[in-house]
Design a binder for these strands. Structure first.
Lengths: 270, 270
DNA sequence: GCAAGCATCTGGCTCAAGCCAGTTGAGATA
DNA sequence: TATCTCAACTGGCTTGAGCCAGATGCTTGC
């Protein structure tokens, strides 16, 4: 490096520090390095001790700066190994077409499988429990259950793409519909999967309602879905509605937001 | 690879400490107190110094435990005041009906206003900039713009509910459509708002595509939307599509996830 | 060429001490 | 009664010291 070539404008740099505490200044500089490609995705950060020396702060402070970036989702640290700049993963895009009756009849696949395999990954679904329980209030409302008969079948499913857990779904089915069918007691749904069985019982999926929110995961979810720090979850309350406008099924999904997205095409009614 | 599928078990309490580091144990106990109502929403936490003494740890450690809960979105700390248990706010529920042509013609309101006022709040929208720019790649794709003519009007809007900033939207409109209309230069859209003007130009909104994701906010977003720690944002890439299946507008929304949710009712095609 | 063993390094976590700016509430003042 | 002042307190943040378990990489022995 020889002559000083004057910079144009400062697209980024020196708004970085303006009486901010050292850990913030440091975090800002590291963030800039990540965003401008100096620290490309996948590359390990320098050690805390090196960073501390480089920026003239205590190791503690350096660690805090790193933690800031971690909480922003820019950095991933695994156990006690070097933290790395997080790689942007390709999202699973979940649309409404996956519920299509035609698609189901043609492929015989469940909505999740259909979607994941379309995107070139390997799908796996684990049904971890099937129980008969009284419906939680939120669910009873959406299923229009009478107060004196709110028994539902609760089915818990874990969804994997390429052997990585990506979401959990809990399906609630009115007992009146599930009774005496595989819905009530078998993890194996057969051809056409869940919605095939609903159709057998006279409920053809015609509308869905999707209520979508996002929040930070609970500790249980963090553990169960192996969610890295700085990654939220997307919550979806999905209601299946049949040809007679009757809800026949509610599923609550909890999905890792770094691996899943939603993609809907919706007709606007006049 | 044996995936860990956690069980229900442990409805709540005493898995709390099992060789976890003190700050975790402490966080778990505090979390339990919050979830079981001992510390109701809105109530202030004891001071760090009190907590430290109560749990027999250094103040530093107590502060870290609090920070854990903050990052989970359970606690809100404002500047240098006592942290409080976060109150669950009512969500703005954004559906697709707000784009309805009939609704627009009847009320003359923009989609956001229609939705917010329906929910009994006061809506305000600030148009902070209108520029003519080349379309970012993501946008050009969705608008089907030819590479040699990718000029768009970029309109930045800030949305407030009851005077609180809840989302930002950036709308991109092909220059060919905006040229010579208020779309190109005026913050004031007139009756029927944005989509009224599109209709004037022969583009009646018929379909929308909504691509939804979630992530932690950038520092700019945190500042601009006054997002508390532990709250993610919901990203929506919204594409407006007309009666001829032509996209005529793309808007990217960034919304506070603690104040906004989405609620779609979607017809399943056979 | 390969596996096992081992010393080194790293991040996770805790502590005690301390400074500072902003919040808070009680009491004084108008 | 309403406003102002001010001292006490609070959380934010930093430091430097230190312990530990796990990751890492080199060396040794087969």
């Amino acid at each position: 490096m020889n002559e000083e070539v004057p910079q144009a404008a400062e697209t980024t740099t020196e708004a970085v520090e303006q009486d901010l505490p050292p850990r913030r200044v440091m975090a800002n500089k590291l963030r800039a390095d990540i965003l401008n490609g100096e620290l490309p995705p996948g590359s390990p950060l320098p050690s805390q001790r090196e960073l501390a020396e480089k920026y003239g702060v205590a190791r503690n402070t350096a660690a805090e700066a790193v933690k800031i970036l971690e909480s922003e989702g820019l950095i991933e640290s695994r156990n006690r190994a070097r933290p790395k700049v997080r790689e942007r993963r390709r999202l699973l895009r979940l649309g409404a077409e996956r519920y299509s009756n035609r698609l189901r009849n043609e492929t015989g696949l469940s909505p999740f499988r259909a979607e994941v395999e379309k995107q070139g990954k390997t799908a796996r679904v684990n049904c971890t429990s099937i129980e008969r329980v009284p419906a939680p209030e939120e669910i009873a409302e959406r299923l229009d259950l009478p107060a004196d008969d709110d028994t539902v079948v609760r089915r818990e499913n874990w969804y994997f793409a390429d052997d990585e857990p990506v979401q959990v779904g809990i399906t609630y089915i009115p007992w009146a519909i599930a009774e005496g069918t595989v819905l009530a007691d078998s993890p194996n749904m057969g051809k056409g999967s869940l919605y095939g069985r609903f159709e057998d019982r006279g409920h053809r999926i015609t509308w869905i309602r999707e209520e979508i929110g996002s929040r930070m995961p609970t500790p249980e979810e963090t553990k169960g879905l192996a969610i890295p720090a700085g990654v939220p979850v997307i919550d979806v309350i999905h209601t299946g509605i049949d040809q007679d406008e009757k809800p026949f099924e509610v599923t609550t999904f909890t999905m890792r937001a770094d691996l899943n997205g939603l993609d809907y095409r919706i007709r606007i009614e006049d």
